[in-house]
Design a binder for these strands. Structure first.
Lengths: 238, 238
DNA sequence: CCTATTAAACCTGTACTACAGGTTTTAAAA
DNA sequence: TTTTAAAACCTGTAGTACAGGTTTAATAGG
């Protein structure tokens, strides 16, 4: 039987208090993704605040992706998700608090590591996925949207193969802003040869990971980012 | 004169739609931190949804730290803040989706880079702050809480001196969970000599940054994390 | 006894009203 | 012009109502 009880709130910030109380409920009852929280009415009674306050608190937690909401369903504990960090990053870029070069520098730092870790830890299935995205980039050479999506999926697949969800979270969160600048880098590459070189680099990287060579994988990833940043500089974007 | 108008919503997910619409309002009107958004009543009228929906949407955006709310005040655009990502990380740890070693590996990867960048870009003021935290760690040797807080501040100061807000954001977000495990690493160090060695390492690192030596700074940061992870392994934590 | 169907109970999403108390703007006074 | 006071504006919380989705319980059929 569940013991999801919570103590009633005191103090000023009702919604904030409810957010904290519900987060504590998850922690102290060892709730895991998929587990159900008490209904709004019960939380309202337990915490001694109106349903209005509970709803706003649950909405806050849903925005942060700690819980999931659905019509008619009780709130459930959510799986780890990059959507919330993605919003933060996008906000930073939109409001000029982060620029694109800073995103790329962070990506290079992290992805040199995910490439090395992926080379050490990848499963056969992950190797196939990574290789298939690299090949799809070359095969869809004329459709830049396709190339971009496979590029993004390629990098995320490597992050996942690193077996560190923190890296996957961060790289996933960068995808939103990357989608907005990627075409600029693609167009700014002087000619098709440069674009083909980029695709070839992806293939080499995939093969280094497949071969289990962390040093080469990291080196190739760094080289890839050097080229990408140079292309964005040429475009005057950064 | 402001032109904060928004088009009315259509479709099913009212709150989600309002979140998107308000985020778009920020983007399309080039609003910056501190700028005011329309009042709830106006948003309600513009988007053709009840104030209830608008309030839940604003709470969502406040949870993500895109906006700031205050009694009597209109919502304002918020500055970049690590609180939202911090909640994500903590949720991942609490629900066993992230473990401590993964946090430390991510930190090592990123902080080797922030140390190198700080060595290249730090201002005099930043050097003073970094050095003062390293010294305070040694001086408060007997008060582990003090040591911990200066340790955290030391690492964050380096991240800020790297001049890449993305790194500062990520390192800041790790502080919450780090506070929960740091004492374990401290206690698990076999004797005071090991603890003193850790403090000495911080001082060396601070001096490498002060000297503008990125290679040494990165090396020392990596060595520091090797020791920390070893200490946590000894404690059986990971 | 087990399974399938149906009804009831439960629950969330949205809208609306009301008002206390905080904030900003406006208007009046000095 | 500056200060002060009033008015207008705005958010925070509580509560009611109801449509429509979901889960659970009860019922029927095998």
């Amino acid at each position: 039987m569940e013991n999801n009880s919570a103590q009633h709130l005191t103090g000023a910030d009702f919604v904030g208090g409810a957010v904290t109380a519900i987060a504590r409920l998850i922690r102290e009852n060892d709730l895991k993704p998929g587990d159900r929280l008490p209904a709004e009415a019960k939380l309202s009674k337990d915490l001694q605040v109106s349903r209005t306050v509970i709803r706003e608190a649950l909405r806050s937690l849903a925005a942060l992706r700690l819980v999931e909401l659905g019509a008619g369903k009780r709130p459930t504990v959510a799986e780890l998700d990059d959507a919330s960090f993605s919003m933060t990053i996008e906000h930073g870029v939109v409001t000029d608090q982060i620029d694109i070069q800073q995103i790329y520098d962070a990506r290079r730092t992290i992805e040199a590591r995910t490439a090395a870790l992926a080379a050490l830890r990848r499963t056969e299935g992950e190797v196939r996925a990574i290789l298939s995205h690299a090949k799809a980039m070359a095969e869809n050479f004329d459709n830049s949207d396709e190339v971009m999506e496979h590029d993004l999926a390629f990098h995320l697949a490597i992050a996942k193969a690193s077996k560190n969800p923190v890296f996957a979270l961060i790289i996933g969160a960068f995808q939103g802003v990357t989608r907005q600048t990627w075409p600029i880098g693609w167009k700014s590459r002087a000619n098709d040869d440069e674009r083909r070189a980029m695709n070839a680099l992806h293939l080499d990287l995939a093969q280094a990971i497949a071969a289990g060579d962390p040093q080469s994988a990291a080196d190739l990833m760094n080289r890839h980012f050097d080229q990408s940043i140079k292309a964005l500089l040429n475009a005057g974007l950064i």
